[in-house]
Write a protein that binds this DNA or RNA. Sequence first.
RNA 1: GGAGGCGUAUCCUAAUUGGCUAAGGAGCCGGUCUUGAAAACCGGUGGGGUGAAGGCCCCGUGUGGGUUCGAGUCCCACCGCCUCCGCCA
Length: 424
Amino acid sequence: MIDIKIVRNNPEVIEEALKNRNVDPTLLEEVLKIDVERRKVIAAADKKKAERNAISSNIAKLMSEGKKNEAQALKDKAKKISQEVKELNQKAGELDELLRAKLLYIPNIPHSSVPIGSDENDNIVVRKWGKPRSFDFEPKPHWELGVQSEQMDFDRAAKLSGSRFVVLRSQLAKLERALINFMLDLHTTEHGYQEVSLPHLVKRETMLSTGQLPKFEEEAYKTEPDDLFLIPTAEVPLVGQHRDEILEFNSLPRKYTAYTPCYRREAGSYGRDVKGMIRVHQFDKVELVWFTHPESSYDTLETLTANAEEVLKRLKLPYRVVSLCSGDLGFAAAKTYDLEVWLPSYNTYREISSCSNVEDFQARRGNIRFRDRDNKLKFVHTLNGSGLAVGRTLVAIVENYQLPDGRIQVPEVLIPYMGLEVIA
RNA sequence: GGAGGCGUAUCCUAAUUGGCUAAGGAGCCGGUCUUGAAAACCGGUGGGGUGAAGGCCCCGUGUGGGUUCGAGUCCCACCGCCUCCGCCA
């Protein structure tokens, strides 16, 4: 959530942020209008309350002196004021709620280093690693390779659950498991993250604090009658863990990694990536999340991104790092690097990880604070990144490591996890 | 699902015939003292409104209502945690 004080004192900052994100700026005007009205009502209510409090203490004094008649006169007066207070209070409460509801729909302010642009075409390639392999045969897309070996089963998945699901078998099922273990081992033993095993169903408030709600409710799977949501990413419970907490200064930064399935309705993506397992309703992901001091969060973004990149480097998968432009930035993010892996079937780079600094946007919504050196309570900064999306990593391996006969060579670092060198 | 208990500030813990400022302790921050530190002592340590500022004011005892001039305290509903019983991988 955006700080109302920034909205109030520097509306031009928000206005520019909304403009750069291609978001309708009328939202800002509404917020400002409500805020002015709200403060007016609060000031009026406070004045009445002060008046009533003064009378109340007079009544107490008179009562103790036994002057009942005088006290009664004041009581009548106070009762009237109390009625006025009640009305003003109610009005203030309504405006407060209205303001909060509007604020929850305002996206984060892009960081000054974020390139200004309208869509993904304006993203900037920061660096590239590795060279796309040149095949001396015609490479096949993963869905052909997988179906051919009967280890990727889209028909049965559709029978079970409909479109955009996949069933994996045998060595590909094992490859998925191997990737999860490889990623978790790397992040815990070499990058210093704490592994966490988490609930996959979370409350509405949890989704709200990370920014998935209220704006993107149609993207989430919701359960009835409990109003629990299936997580679209482990970021949600990882960040939500510390909701309404005050973290020790010395416990920061906190670094967590978690493997979870991710559930996404993919509403509005009909017709995109319909073949294969690039875009499915359920996929595995190993997530990285940091809680940091505000002053170090941008250094952390570089570290976090490097941690995710390390997975691709060890798997020897060619990739590039892209800095998302303002128009392509996610709702909660102040700055995002996407990692894109080379996919022969698409003949291009496709997103496999997204690493973001959301600054205090989620901390403000979730009330996650720490006590600073000056003893003041402040909001932490949170960062998240995929390290990596397991399904897409599997796709990348299948396509990039394919052999002319359709078998898949196992990347060297995965051989200990797979117990074999080639997937037949 | 049934029964009972408990929710107070960063933490621990008080406060019932409803009434001045939610007492006390710990931690932390700042200050005094000291060669330095410790101890001791003093002040501060949630949110909001208003003001150029000193300041002034309002709210805050799980949440939301109610009674009352006035609620930590009385009433109602809800939420969370704990214990026991039942069911259960």
